[in-house]
């Protein structure tokens, strides 16, 4: 198939948004090399987990083919997911994590390695507050933090108790990277179609989802949550014509076993590749940004959404108005943190 150029996307009115950092949209026809890593972190041992990240980078260096453009790691992979009141002990500032990743990469790849991008989930400390966050950074020469996403939908039900220990994020942003405009949603964030919709409306071409999904429902050949996540990510990708790169945490933590299943979904909702649910793995897959144009031309859902957005937004406003506004309640709804993550300022 003849490759379409980025220009063909523009008439659809979907993808281009002003790149605040001046970064360009992806060059046409140049595939983006992705590596989705899943591993079982050592509980509470940030150094050991940086070591596991270094092992993944070293494995990618040894692997045939060029080093990937973007390497994606799961939610809370620097510490393990269930850390309860120890969040403060394992949390890092985004700057500290960036520096550590920089050092880890230099050690694993040599000081003069080619720059690459990294997405990694971690517990973040910022100004005395704690978040379940994911960093997007370029590592290497002219490296920089490009974005920090803070999880909005803190799972707090059943086995989950996030909101007891961390504050929730407030914004969903798309941001420019050397490899296209991207957004990050963490785990339950991505279960909400409004969240993936906002990411897509803000111009994300690829949505990164660091996740930690404990396996349950063993009545069929694979855990039920694996099937559910596959469905959620496929529907979201097809609805908006975006790539979705999902990286799942691995390992048992206090009897709860996380189900890796890192996967790449194409903009038709097509499952391009998926890692096993119970073994360390690096899923390597190249994606061509021009596929977005093809998908959005064939299935112009996002364009249709934009056409109806004003009415839909009014309806959402009506619904919001019907619900009582939070006055004084828990930390998550009162102390509204209007600030964006530091690197976005």
């Amino acid at each position: 198939m003849k490759r379409r150029t980025q220009r063909l996307i523009k008439p659809l009115g979907l993808v281009p948004r002003p790149g605040r950092s001046g970064a360009r949209s992806p060059k046409s026809g140049r595939p983006i090399g992705l590596a989705l890593v899943q591993f079982a972190p050592v509980k509470g041992d940030v150094d050991a987990n940086l070591g596991a990240i270094g092992d993944a980078l070293a494995a990618l260096k040894r692997d045939a083919g060029p080093f990937p453009d973007v390497v994606v790691f799961p939610e809370a992979c620097l510490s393990g997911y269930f850390v309860e009141g120890a969040v403060r002990e394992v949390a890092l500032t985004s700057d500290n994590l960036f520096k550590s990743l920089h050092g880890t990469a230099a050690k694993a790849l040599g000081a003069s390695h080619r720059p690459f991008d990294i997405v990694a989930g971690f517990y973040e400390a910022d100004g005395g507050k704690l978040y379940n966050s994911a960093l997007y950074a370029t590592i290497g020469r002219s490296g920089a933090i490009r974005h920090v996403h803070r999880k909005l939908f803190l799972a707090t039900y059943g086995v989950f108790d996030e909101e007891r220990f961390v504050s929730r994020g407030r914004t969903i942003e798309a941001f420019d990277t050397p490899h296209g405009r991207a957004a990050i949603l963490i785990c339950e964030d991505a279960c909400h179609s409004l969240a993936t919709t906002i990411a897509a409306l803000r111009g994300a071409q690829i949505l990164y989802i660091p996740s930690a999904s404990p396996g349950r429902g063993l009545e069929d050949a694979e855990p039920a949550n694996v099937r559910l996540w596959r469905d959620i990510t496929r529907v979201a990708a097809a609805e908006h014509g975006i790539f979705i790169a999902y990286s799942g945490l691995l390992g048992f933590e206090g009897g709860k076993g996380f189900t890796g299943s890192s996967r790449l979904i194409g903009p038709f909702g097509d499952l391009r590749a998926e890692a096993p649910f119970d073994a360390p793995a690096i899923l390597r897959v190249d994606v061509d940004p021009v596929d977005l144009a093809a998908a959005r031309a064939a299935l112009p859902m996002l364009g249709d959404l934009e056409a109806n957005l004003a009415e839909l937004t009014a309806m959402l406003d009506d619904e919001a108005a019907l619900r009582p506004r939070p006055r004084r309640s828990n930390r998550s709804t009162v102390k509204v943190d209007r600030s964006k993550p530091s690197r976005r300022r």
Binding site: K43, G44, F82, E84, G85, A86, E253, G254
Partner: peptide, 8 residues
């Protein structure tokens, strides 16, 4: 109040 997971 003092909450640490079993495997921490």
């Amino acid at each position: 109040f003092y909450l640490r997971p079993v495997d921490y």
